[in-house]
Every structure is written in C-alpha cells, then in structure tokens.
C-alpha cells in the first residue's frame, strides 16, 4: 500500500503528485493541488458536485481513483475561464441568476460544458437530461437550465430573457 508518484495533466498543466492507491481524484485535486472548485458532497456519485472532465467527458471525481486518471486530460472548473475572462457559459450563469448558494455550480458548469461541446444550442429537454445527474439543493433548476440553453447568446443581454435581466436593475 505504498504511495506512488504519478503525473496528472490538469487544465493543460502537468502536476507531479504522490498518491495512495485509495486516494480519489477529488481528494488529490482538493487536498494536494488546492483546486477546491470541485466539491465533495455525497461522496458516492449521486449528487454531481464533484464532476470534472476526463478527456472531455464528464465523470465523477469522487468515484475515480487518482491512479486511474493518469494519462487523461483532466479539466476542472478552474480551467473553464481564460484568466479573468469567464467562459460564455459561466457568464450566462451570472446573467441568468443561476447561482444561489453555489455549491452545485462547479458540477453543473462541468456537466453543461460537456453538453455544449457536443450540442452548442441545446433545447430545454436535452439540457435537463444532461444535467439530470446533478442535484441543486436550493432547487434553482429553472434558472440553471435557462442559463445553459442561452449560453450561446453571448454576454450581457440574452433576447429570450431580456425582461428577466432588466427587471432586477
């Protein structure tokens, strides 16, 4: 049960870490690499707050061994923005008021980002299906689904939700 040296490719940067066989990818991301965007909630693959991408596919980092993540391109929520420039999806979450307590948001963003890569303008049904593995305990699903559906409409004003956006200002 010795620790093993591995290298992980996270957000296009190589990281050298020393892990035990029973370390999950989530534990390594949060505890060793300080990438605390991915959250641990249920720890058994039900809630989706720990979702990250492995080779562009969304997976649960709490049910992935760090050892198994070797050789994959891992992307966490920290890798979505380009420096201080938020991605369209992240900006859309803000514009549409899709963040409440924020605990589920990293997972939601990662699941939604994977969806948008295969389908840039998904309808409501597709979005709901793609996000069905993520739980929001504030139950703010309507805004989240709206944000994802309209992520393709860049930045400040989305024509479909214009009245919503203006009402708060």
């Amino acid at each position: 049960m010795d620790k093993i040296d591995i290298s992980l490719n996270i957000n296009d940067k190589p990281f050298e870490v020393r892990v035990a066989p029973n370390d999950t990818l989530l534990e390594v991301l949060r505890d060793q690499l300080d990438l605390t965007g991915s959250k641990e909630s249920c720890g058994e693959g039900v809630c989706g707050s720990c979702t990250v991408h492995m080779d562009d596919k969304p997976v649960r980092s709490c049910l992935t061994l760090a050892l198994e993540a070797q050789g994959c391109n891992i992307k966490t929520v920290e890798g979505l923005a380009n420096g201080d420039d938020l991605s369209d999806l992240q900006q859309s979450f803000i514009d549409h008021g899709a963040v409440q307590c924020g605990f589920c948001t990293p997972g939601m963003l990662m699941s939604a980002d994977a969806l948008l890569k295969s389908n840039p303008s998904p309808n409501e049904e597709t979005t709901r299906k793609a996000l069905s593995g993520n739980i929001c305990r504030c139950t703010g699903y309507a805004k989240i689904v709206e944000a994802v559906c309209h992520a393709a409409n860049p930045h400040d004003r989305c024509p479909d939700c214009k009245t919503d956006n203006n009402s708060g200002e």
Partner: peptide
Amino acid sequence: IGAVTIQHYR
C-alpha cells in the same frame, strides 16, 4: 442506467 455524467462514460 444512472445518469449521463455518472455511469455512461465510466
């Protein structure tokens, strides 16, 4: 089976 993000790829 499960949900897209849990079971389908892993």
